[in-house]
Amino acid sequence: MSHEFEPRIVVLCCNWCTYAGADLAGTSRMKYAPNVRLVRVMCSGRVDPSFVLRAFQDGADGVLIAGCHPGDCHYINGNLKTLRRYPALETLIAQFGIEPDRMRLEWISAAEGDVFVHVVNEMTEQVRALGPLDWKRRTAMTVPAAESHTAG
């Protein structure tokens, strides 16, 4: 086994575009880095900022949020809500000392298996270059536990 650092990346993706795009990458037998784990939500608009923080807190080295292209949202414009929320999320992770390159927002359609592959590979290398995040050691701060948010 090589001891090279293998980044761990959580992908929060919408059901209609990006999840289907990842399916297309599969049916087309494209190959990409095995460093991502997908968590499917119906719309990227469902991505609560706490999900991203939880992933980093758990130990993720990178988080990718991915949804339909603006205008193509299955739910009309849920993705635009994500887009609007994203800058605040960027500021937030910066406050936690997390490098901006560890988080990405991408629009990947159901027809863009190749884009999915490209983004995953690129981000894997980007995060690999940054090295492990090691959230717990970096900050003594803890994110509000999910349990306080159980209503959702």
Partner: peptide, 26 residues
């Protein structure tokens, strides 16, 4: 239609997205 945008937006955590609730996703 269950997109969940309101669930992610509600500042009070007062909306549950059935089958995709916060506990499940976390």
């Amino acid at each position: 239609k269950g997109c969940g945008t309101c669930v992610a937006t509600c500042p009070s955590g007062a909306i549950v997205g059935r089958h995709f609730n916060d506990r499940q996703i976390l």
